[in-house]
Write a protein that binds this DNA or RNA. Structure first.
Length: 207
DNA sequence: AATAGGATTTCCT
DNA sequence: GGAAATCCTATTC
C-alpha cells in the first residue's frame, strides 16, 4: 500500500505517480478504480487552486496532512475527490479525475446508470458518484487507512504519461498540471497528439 | 456532431 | 448576487 511519504511531495509529482495505482471504497460493497487521470493544484500562488481562497475557508484542507481527502461540491451538484499532497510546510492537493473500473463494476454501474466501463468514472464528478464519495462522508478522511483508501498498483512509466493543461478553469489553465495515462479510454477528455511523450512546449488552448 | 441550458451548494464580493 | 476544478439532456445542424 502507499505510504504517507508518497503524498509528502510536490503535487505534480504525486499526481503523475498516482497513475496506475488504485482508489478503493470497501463499503458497502467493494468498488475499485485504476487511476488514469489526475490534476495537481498548488498553493496560493497557483491561480487555479482553491488555496487562493485562503486557509480560513473550506479550502484550508489544502494545508492539512498529506494523504487526507479534500472533497468539495462543484456547481452545486458534483463531488470532487482530491488527496492532500505537498511537502512539509507547503500547500496543495491532487484531483482524482478519472479511473478504470477493476472491481465492483456492477455496483458502480448501478450508481452511474450505465454499463459502459468508459462512462463509469471518466470525469471527476462521475468518479465520485461511482465510488459513492461525498463531502459529508469523506472530507478530511485519511485515505491511507479508512474504508476509502489507495491500493498499490502498477505505476505507468513516463513514456505512457501525457501532460496537458488543466480542465475547466478560468485562470491557470495554461499550466501543465494534468496527467493522463495516454493509452486509457477511460479518461474525461482525449489527449491532444502533441501532448504525448516528451515534455510539451508552448501553450495549450481550451478543450 | 456540436451546442446550449439547467441543476443547485458553497463561498465570495 | 454571481461564479465555480461538471455532467446530463434536448435541440439543431
Amino acid at each position: 500500500m502507499l505510504e504517507r511519504a508518497f503524498f509528502e511531495r510536490p503535487p505534480p509529482e504525486v499526481a503523475r505517480d498516482l497513475l496506475g495505482h488504485r482508489i478503493r471504497h470497501a463499503s458497502p460493497k467493494p468498488a475499485e478504480l485504476r487511476i488514469v487521470e489526475t490534476e495537481a493544484y498548488l498553493g496560493p500562488d497557483d491561480p487555479g487552486s482553491h488555496a487562493t481562497r485562503g486557509r480560513d475557508t473550506q479550502a484550508g484542507q489544502l494545508w492539512a496532512t498529506p494523504g487526507q481527502a479534500y472533497v468539495y461540491v462543484c456547481y452545486g451538484v458534483h463531488q470532487m475527490l482530491n488527496v492532500v499532497a505537498h511537502e512539509p510546510g507547503s500547500v496543495g492537493a491532487v484531483l482524482i479525475r478519472a479511473g478504470e473500473p477493476v472491481d465492483g463494476i456492477d455496483v458502480m454501474g448501478e450508481r452511474r446508470g450505465t454499463t459502459e466501463t468508459d462512462e463509469i468514472a471518466s470525469g471527476p464528478g462521475r468518479l465520485a458518484e461511482a465510488l459513492d464519495v461525498t463531502r459529508e462522508a469523506h472530507e478530511g478522511a485519511d485515505l491511507l487507512e479508512g474504508s476509502l483508501r489507495f491500493q498499490e498498483g502498477q505505476p505507468v512509466d513516463s513514456d505512457g504519461v501525457a501532460v496537458t493543461g488543466r480542465i475547466g478553469l478560468s485562470e491557470g489553465e495554461d499550466r501543465l498540471l494534468r496527467f493522463v495515462d495516454a493509452s486509457s479510454p477511460h479518461v474525461s477528455r482525449p489527449v491532444p497528439p502533441e501532448a504525448m511523450g516528451e515534455t510539451p512546449d508552448v501553450e495549450m488552448r481550451k478543450r
